[in-house]
Design a protein around this nucleic acid. Structure first.
Length: 566
RNA sequence: CGGGGUGUAGCGCAGGGGUUAGCGCGCAUGGUUUGGGACCAUGAGGUCGGAGGUUCAAAUCCUCUCACCCCGACCA
């Protein structure tokens, strides 16, 4: 491609709406164009990158026996009502009516549709196992799109779906998919760790995420360096610190004027936070929940949501709290009735806690479970964090931010049962198909690659997905000899099948070099009056400060045979 | 949905009741330049996000509204 004719306009300045590095660079390099909040167009150069990522995914999926298909973006809402996921997705579902009033939605994912397709085609265990996948646009009306392409409302996703006759067969496909993902990340030069994950709105039992460590990521990974345990914070368990036992003391009311937070109460009474009980009030679509947890811990709302089995969960507002007869800041489970009380199992570790007195300005000392209060549910509902012990080996846990690139789920039979996707097993019995699904954010990976591979000048593409392999930079295009030599090189590169971006513009060197760096093409080949004096061209890696000269006659072969060594 | 911020030329910004709304980049034309965003000259480009109001007069003040971004909530 000739730059003089390319639909490519780089920008010198950062767009003001962008905060994240990948967002800034994608716009500045002319790869994407922001159309509206969380919706982007891919311009020619950006599309080349996306297409390359897609091709790598296709190749690796085919290698593990997956077959590609394409599904519609429009889906009948009724299909979602049958699995109940219209509620699980809630407002995130983009929905619309056709002219007859029939309700449709734009697919945020395709489990329902594919299960329905497979249901009609698969009759027998002989048709299984099956691994199908799609790479296409999905739509989610995110509460808050952010980070440019990292969380968009319209985005590109690879989704694989597996159909098996047994749990064991499902395990097999699941591992094949994980293997394919490993290969994909490897080829993209994108470091990714696999972690245990919560399955969220999609449902299912076992689930893993692939996360690339990055400070601009939205997810937090809790991991153990000693034994390799790693889980998303939403899912992670930690061993909560023990507290030395002591004999239970007498319940005692103390005055704590204006002390409503754990920090205030704990320093006012000179009691460490782990010897206090924190009370929080949540509201679900049905009721107010009173949550009790040891003062040094935080509530993991995902875990809480699971044990409550609710769709909506949020901190209750002051009105809701007062209407339930609770005293914000001074509430405790002691002597409380009429409200569902859920406790973290940390209340079993420790005794003689300080808790609210359900009376403004007062707290209770020496509160002990179960002597002084009851709970409807006790479970692990705490957020794991650094400082806690690894659930497998007991060593200290660590945490790290990351970007979620992929998420795989063992769905089991939840979808097949709801949608009656059955097959006849070898004894002729009708059984639901065992399903798995495997999602990978295509354009999110592009953003993640930029996040972790750039410098102050611009993007640094891995060779495997760079839009072009060579940036051919001709300095002084008005010099006939430069023009002639550069044109010749350009044609030679193209004949040999090397993807080359030819900067044939009549621009000063600084402009060209800066664009070359911004666009992140791995190799730059410069022809100028200076290099022509020695009948050579300058070769420079994007990642290196140094350059070298190669005789003009050997440039194309040299670059083709040893792309990484100049 | 709560909190905060920003909307003025293609992009980045200044101007905060007073006549013709500026600057930088980019763009166009001509010329000089060509190894890290070079220079000179000339020029084009604006419903000041939108609606309503106050005023002799509104980009500027008031009210409402929309869009975008950030934090939180939320999220495969």
């Amino acid at each position: 491609m000739r730059l003089s004719q390319a639909f490519l306009h780089t920008r010198r300045e950062d767009p003001k709406e962008a905060e994240t590095i990948s967002h800034k660079l994608l716009i500045r390099s002319g790869m994407v164009y922001p159309v509206t909040g969380g919706v982007y167009a891919y311009l020619p150069l950006g599309l080349r990158v996306v297409e390359k990522v897609k091709r790598i995914i296709e190749e690796e999926m085919e290698k593990v026996g997956a077959q590609e298909l394409l599904m519609p973006h429009l889906q009948p809402l009724s299909l979602w009502q049958r699995t109940g996921r219209d509620h699980a997705f809630g407002q995130n579902l983009f929905s619309l009516h056709d002219r007859k009033g029939f309700e449709l939605c734009l697919g945020p994912t395709h489990e329902e549709v594919i299960t329905n397709i497979v249901r009609s085609q698969v009759e027998s265990y002989r048709d299984l196992p099956l691994l199908l996948y799609q790479i296409q646009t999905k739509f989610r009306d995110e509460v808050r799109p952010r980070g440019g392409i990292i969380r968009a409302r319209e985005f590109m996703m690879m989704d694989g779906y597996s159909f098996s006759a047994s749990e064991a067969e499902l395990d097999e496909v699941y591992h094949k998919a994980i293997h394919a993902y490993g290969q994909i990340f490897h080829r993209l030069e994108l470091p990714a760790v696999i972690v245990e994950a919560d399955s969220g709105a999609i449902g299912g039992k076992e689930s893993h995420e692939f996360i690339t460590p990055n400070p601009s990521g939205e997810d937090k990974v809790i991991y153990c360096e000693n034994c390799g345990y790693a889980a998303n914070e939403e899912k992670a368990h930690g061993i909560k610190p023990d507290i030395p036992p002591e004999p239970p003391g007498e319940l005692e009311e103390v005055s704590t004027p204006g002390m409503t937070t754990i920090d205030e109460v704990s320093s006012f009474l000179s009691v460490p936070p782990e010897k206090t009980l924190k009370a929080l009030f949540y509201s679900t679509e049905e009721e107010i929940i009173f949550v009790v947890i040891r003062g040094d811990l935080k509530v993991n709302e995902v875990k809480l949501k699971h044990i409550l089995g609710c769709f909506e969960l949020g901190l209750a507002n002051d009105d809701e709290v007062r209407n339930a007869g609770l005293v914000p800041g001074f509430a405790s489970p002691v002597g409380l009735s009429g409200v569902k009380i859920v406790a973290d199992d940390s209340i079993l570790k420790g005794q003689n806690f300080v808790a609210g007195a359900n009376r403004s300005g007062f707290h209770l000392k020496n509160v002990n479970y179960p002597r002084d209060f009851k709970c409807d549910l006790i479970s692990d509902i705490a957020l794991a964090s650094t400082g806690q012990g690894c659930p497998h080996c007991g060593q200290d846990l660590r945490s790290r931010q990351g970007i979620e690139l992929g998420h795989v789920f063992k769905l089991g039979t939840i979808f097949s049962e709801k949608l009656s996707a059955l097959f006849s097993d070898s004894r002729g019995r009708q059984r639901p198909i065992f399903m798995g699904c495997y999602g990978l954010g295509v354009d999110r990976m592009v953003a993640a690659i930029i996040e972790q591979s750039h410098d102050e000048k611009g993007i640094i593409w891995p060779r495997s997905i760079s839009p072009y392999q060579v940036y051919l930079c001709a300095l002084g295009m008005d010099n006939p000899e430069v023009r002639e030599r550069a044109e010749k090189l350009y044609n030679e590169f193209r004949q040999k099948g090397v993807e080359v971006l030819f900067d044939d513009r009549l621009e000063p060197p600084g402009v060209k070099f800066n664009d070359a760096d911004l666009l992140g093409i791995p190799l730059r080949v410069t022809v100028s009056p200076r290099t022509l004096k020695t009948n050579s061209a300058e070769i420079k890696q994007r990642t290196s400060k140094d350059s070298s000269l190669l005789p003009l006659s050997g440039v194309v072969e040299g670059v083709r045979n040893h792309p990484g060594e100049h």
